[in-house]
Design a binder for these strands. Structure first.
Length: 985
DNA sequence: GGGCCATTT
């Protein structure tokens, strides 16, 4: 086989001009073949191979622009002026290859005639019947395990003997000295002090909302109070409490804390936790408290929709309004009718507790007063007064800062509010004139790092106790700039201050120094994103400086795009930030915005369900049999707009996960079982079928969790370098992850993994989690019968793992239709211009600077598959892999053929186009049809792939793999075509 | 020419 793009410049021309510079001469697929615009039109396709014929080299005496002009003239001489701006790659098959495929197709026809009628075609409704039966069986099996008859209304079954022994055990425990010491502490917590009222409400109501600020002990105490009362009243065998937390770390720490208070070992007695890939559930199965992440409860719901194992469900931190907790309380709202014995406790911050109570038909509310130290609040006017800071006029100021979608006239409206606020301060003589002069300047509305520096100096001068300072800024950029400014201004020398940047991508998030008091009596200054608002808690903070901004993802339904915007914080954010100063002593919070600005703040951050794509939510609704998505989602506390639901359903239909009636297809059924988004799910199913499980599971793990790379401040370029080395010319961000995990494992076998992580900017924790996720994914594939074992490295399932062409093809199969095209103009002087990236829906997009393909302009193939696309300062593709034509033809969308003058043109989904003769197309299309049938059969009736070349499946798979492999090798110039009979045309 | 934060038997 050979493919001849055959036009344009060659890589490596002119003595290593290209980054690859292998100097392959005219062999194979030229780098321009896919989408490099002809531009000044160098090269061209002679009759011979790859543009070698007909095209001359420019005379050696020419320089710079003259070279380009020479090629331009040459282009005109060979092809005439405007014609032949062909940029579509041409796909050809050698005669021997054609003969092979023709023979294969004939044998496949014989196979299908010989096999039972209907094999290969799927019958959706049969599948769905089986699948619904399975769901039913699971439910009944769970009921039987819980000691119920199938169909019974659930509930725990009393065991009088156990009631007695649980009661005795608790009494014994209450006399232990350790327990009593802990009890003296517990008794001081507000939640414990309101014990009787709380328990009375619990007895009298099925659903209650508990509100209270951090530090009141509601999470640790309420579950214990319920359990102890149940046990003491002789009902211990009827009590299992599950308490959900939004984050893994809080599920574990709360469980550990409660176990300690009960003088127990975690997972040994009444208290345990369960988070993904890590659980220590209580050994006994009655009289327990289980802390788990919300996602874990969702998995319980699949097998046990009525949560029959539990008597109490406690949903904590519901005020955070994450998708899962919103979703869960909607399910619970229906479940309480089916389970009159089930008690539901919703826990929220005080501010919006009423909203939840109203949602549950005005259920009872109980507020527990807070227990924190007082925090003095200052606003911009006070900061200006204390620092005497003056704003430099900023010519380039776009306008006072404002929200993302400003209503018409919002700026003017705010200006009037600010002016009236200033007039009032003037009348009241609260602040001197110079402060008001500054406050009214538009510059006062901008995030000003000089002001922060000035305020820090003010704090350092007035406070001699070196209290720790926490600064909230919106993102990486501001952390970086402020850090540089503080380090270089000379006023915060290392022997007096310790400055720690804190961001999820910086290694400091896992360092103890963040929590400890710095040695030598120095002052700790932490510059953080909102990671320090909930995820990381630093106890010794005395001062908080709140810049008042937050970066937040939104979903733009009109443009079908995810965006990342900087916005003013909500009141809830501001309160939370302020509270960070009062954890162990009285504190001070400086808000870097005026009281007037604060008046424009929303009360709460927009619920996550209104800010996200809904594909996974829709699949979950289907898995849990909750009916049509539209009606179900309208039951939510804040229903997402129907447009957003439609977009999700449409995309799932496009992925063949749902049929047009919104039923799960067999593929959709598998995807809904997998803990990842549908496209990544599709990728791992295909990896199972195509025998490249290990590398693809690495990619899937990182796409569904996070990138394992740290980026230490100032090391950005070094991280880029390491990533380029790991990519090793593959032009793939996804393969970087594969190589990183492989490298880690190799290093670990020599006990060198720490060094490996250090020199490659990897987070060892994240890599280990990714490896555990791979194991979990392999277990899923095994359970679904896509693998015969659950071993990631199993040879049978990795026959193609070292074949980069196939691994990339499977990346493409999963990520499709997320495909961008690349064009590179050839400049007059013969050098390459910048790569221009486009997608069908968005037009021009940019590659994110973190991508290894950013700044690349020498692409052997003009297609990039991507996973994440987000609009920030520009519309970015965050992660890309260069893809060759055959994977798009075999795993992309609908193929169609047309004649364009004398050329045959094949298009994929009426979008991506390739040149192909009709007879070649017929062969390719026939192969594709057989592949589609095979895949559908594999999806409906999974089983390990049979690679034997005499089987229908084996022969077809081998043929397709051979085509993709040969194409890839030829393009990348790795050891020729890898095909012994390729040179016969 | 530049990266908010979480999370799944």
């Amino acid at each position: 086989m050979s493919q001849r793009g055959g036009r344009g410049f060659m890589r490596g021309r002119g003595g290593g001009g290209g980054s690859y510079g292998r100097g392959r001469g005219g062999r194979g697929y030229s780098s321009s073949s896919a989408h490099h615009s002809q531009g000044s039109g160098r090269g061209g396709e002679g009759g011979g191979r790859g543009g070698a014929g007909g095209r001359g080299r420019h005379p050696p005496h020419l320089k710079g622009r003259e070279i380009g002009l020479w090629y331009a003239k040459e282009q005109v001489r060979l092809y005439g002026k405007k014609e032949d701006k062909e940029t579509r790659p041409k796909i050809e098959l050698s005669p021997s290859k054609r003969a092979k495929i023709t023979e294969l197709l004939a044998s496949l026809e014989r196979h299908s005639k010989a096999s039972i009628a209907g094999a290969g075609a799927i019958n959706n409704s049969d599948f769905m019947k089986r699948y619904r039966q399975n769901v039913e069986n699971n439910v009944n099996a769970a009921a039987i395990r819980a000691g119920l008859r199938p169909g019974d209304i659930a509930g725990l079954v009393r065991n009088a003997e156990l009631d007695e022994s649980l009661k005795n055990e608790l009494e014994r425990k209450q006399s232990s000295p350790k327990y009593q010491t802990m009890m003296r502490f517990r008794e001081k917590l507000p939640a414990y002090q309101h014990k009787d009222e709380f328990l009375k409400l619990m007895r009298e109501n099925q659903v209650i909302v508990i509100s209270g600020e951090t530090g009141c002990g509601k999470t640790t105490q309420c579950c214990q109070l319920i359990l102890d009362e149940m046990i003491q009243s002789g009902n211990g065998s009827l009590c299992n409490i599950v308490c959900t937390q939004p984050r893994r770390i809080s599920a574990v720490t709360v469980a550990e804390r409660v176990a300690e208070e009960r003088d127990e070992q975690i997972g040994r007695n009444s208290v345990g936790y369960s988070i993904r890939l890590e659980s220590r559930v209580p050994e006994r199965d009655k009289g327990t408290i289980l802390f788990c992440t919300t996602g874990v409860v969702f998995k319980y719901l699949i097998d046990d929709p009525k949560l029959t194992k539990y008597s109490h469900v406690v949903v904590d931190e519901i005020h955070e309004r994450d998708v899962l907790s919103d979703f869960l309380i909607t399910i619970l709202k229906d479940l309480v009718n089916l389970r009159p014995d089930l008690k539901v406790i919703l826990m929220s911050a005080t501010l919006n507790a009423d909203k939840f109570s109203n949602y549950f038909r005005h259920c009872s509310r109980f507020n527990i007063p807070g227990f924190t130290f007082p925090v003095t609040e200052y606003f911009m006017e006070d900061v200006l007064l204390q620092t005497r800071f003056t704003f430099e006029p900023n010519e380039r100021l776009q306008r006072p800062w404002r929200g993302k979608n400003p209503r018409k006239g919002e700026d003017q409206e705010f200006k009037r509010m600010l002016e009236s606020h200033v007039r009032k301060l003037e009348r009241d003589k609260t602040y001197p004139r110079h402060v008001l002069n500054e406050l009214i300047k538009p510059e006062a509305e901008e995030l000003n790092l000089d002001l922060i520096t000035s305020l820090l100096l003010h704090i350092c001068e007035t406070d001699r106790d070196n209290g720790a300072i926490l600064i909230f800024v919106p993102g990486w950029d501001q952390i970086s700039k402020l850090n540089t400014q503080l380090q270089s201004c000379g006023k915060f020398p290392g022997h007096r201050t310790l400055i720690i940047p804190l961001h999820s991508m910086m290694p400091t998030v896992n360092q103890k120094e963040v929590f400890n008091r710095p040695p030598g009596g120095r002052r700790k200054i932490i510059i953080a994103t909102n990671i320090a608002e909930t995820s990381i808690t630093i106890d010794d903070i005395v001062y908080v400086i709140d810049a008042g901004r937050i970066k937040i993802t939104n979903f733009d339904m009109q443009r079908n795009l995810e965006t990342l915007d900087t916005e003013w914080v909500s009141m809830a954010n501001a309160t939370q930030r302020k509270g960070r100063a009062g954890r162990v002593q009285a504190g001070i919070c400086y808000h870097l915005y005026s009281k007037a600005r604060e008046n424009t703040f929303e009360s709460f951050k927009k619920p996550e369900i209104l800010r996200k794509r809904l594909e996974e939510v829709v699949l979950q609704i289907k898995t849990l049999n909750l009916g049509m998505t539209g009606p179900f989602l309208r039951k939510l506390l804040d229903p997402p707009p129907s447009k957003s639901v439609e977009l999700a359903v449409q995309r799932l239909i496009q992925l063949h996960a749902l049929d047009s009636d919104e039923n799960l297809t067999p593929l959709g059924f598998h995807l809904s079982q997998l803990p990842m988004d549908p496209q990544t799910g599709k990728m791992i199913l295909m990896a199972g079928i195509f025998g490249c499980v290990d590398p693809i599971l690495s990619i899937a793990a990182s796409l569904s969790f996070k990138d394992p790379f740290y980026i230490p401040l100032g090391q950005e370029k070094n991280v880029d370098r390491v990533r380029r080395e790991l990519a090793d010319g593959s032009k793939s961000d996804h393969l970087i992850i594969v190589r990183a995990i492989e490298g880690y494992q190799r290093a670990r076998s020599h006990n060198r993994e720490r060094d490996f992580c250090y020199s490659n900017f990897l987070s060892g924790n994240t890599v280990q989690l990714l490896m555990n996720m791979k194991k979990q994914f392999a277990e899923h594939l095994h359970q679904m019968d896509y693998m015969s074992t659950a071993i990631v490295e199993d040879g049978e399932h990795n026959v193609n793992s070292d074949n980069i062409g196939i691994v990339k093809a499977i990346i493409c199969a999963g990520l499709y239709p997320n495909i961008a095209t690349v064009t590179v103009k050839v400049k007059m002087n013969g050098s390459l211009g910048l790569a221009k990236i486009r997608t069908r829906e968005d037009g021009k997009v940019d590659l994110h600077p973190k991508s290894v393909n950013c700044n690349e302009n020498n692409f052997e193939s003009g297609y990039l598959a991507y996973f994440q696309k987000m609009k920030t300062s520009s519309l970015f593709l965050y992660d890309t892999t260069m893809i060759t034509p055959f994977p798009l033809i075999f795993f992309g969308g609908q193929l169609s053929f047309r004649k364009e003058k004398h050329l045959g043109v094949v298009s994929v989904d009426q979008n991506l186009e390739f040149l192909m003769e009709k007879d070649v197309f017929d062969l390719v299309q026939a192969l594709r049809k057989h592949l589609d049938e095979l895949l559908e059969e594999k999806i409906t009736n999974p089983g390990p792939t049979c690679w034997h070349e005499l089987s229908k499946e084996g022969a077809l798979m081998r043929a397709i793999i051979e085509l993709i492999t040969a194409e890839y090798k030829e393009m990348l110039g790795e050891g020729g075509s890898g095909d012994s009979d390729s040179d016969d045309d």
